[in-house]
Amino acid sequence: MLLRGKAWTFGDNIDTDVIIPARYLNTSDPAELARHCMEDADREFARKVQPGDIIVGGANFGCGSSREHAPLAIKGAGVSCVIARTFARIFYRNAFNIGLPILECPAAVDGIRSGDQVEVDTASGRIKNLTTGAEFEAKPIPPFMQEIIAAGGLIEHVRRKFHLGEN
């Protein structure tokens, strides 16, 4: 999958309370969650983000609470991909499980500034900064995760295990 969009950069340890504050967790509707995405880090983000845009975080992105509402809010806001130096482990699983592509790439994090146009090839892990021309290679997605993605997400993966076929 080829993704293209404007980069929004954030620092290290962006926690899930910042991604979607608990005061909005009385719903799990992605559209409603998206309206408050990143609110406590950047009040303008949810209003200004465009479909396809890419979040670039630092180390330990998505730390803290296990709330799946965090990747859902990001996906609901139209963000096509998150690139970070490292991800917190629960967020990492959750993102794949709900179909939000995420890539670990410290070099890309160093080489992308807010507002740069970025292109990501999720299959190869190649990341291009179209503004500067720089290219980066992300860590490949582990084979086990690729299976879940190939199945169309975790729930479809489980459906297949039960041989429940297509709906």
């Binding site: 990747p71 959750n94 709900i98 729930i155 489980v158």
Partner: peptide, 17 residues
């Protein structure tokens, strides 16, 4: 800790990865 989707799969399967 896991997310809700991982949990849903484990609720059905009694296993996870």
């Amino acid at each position: 800790g896991v997310g809700s989707t991982d949990l849903a799969a484990a609720m059905a399967l009694g296993e996870t990865w």
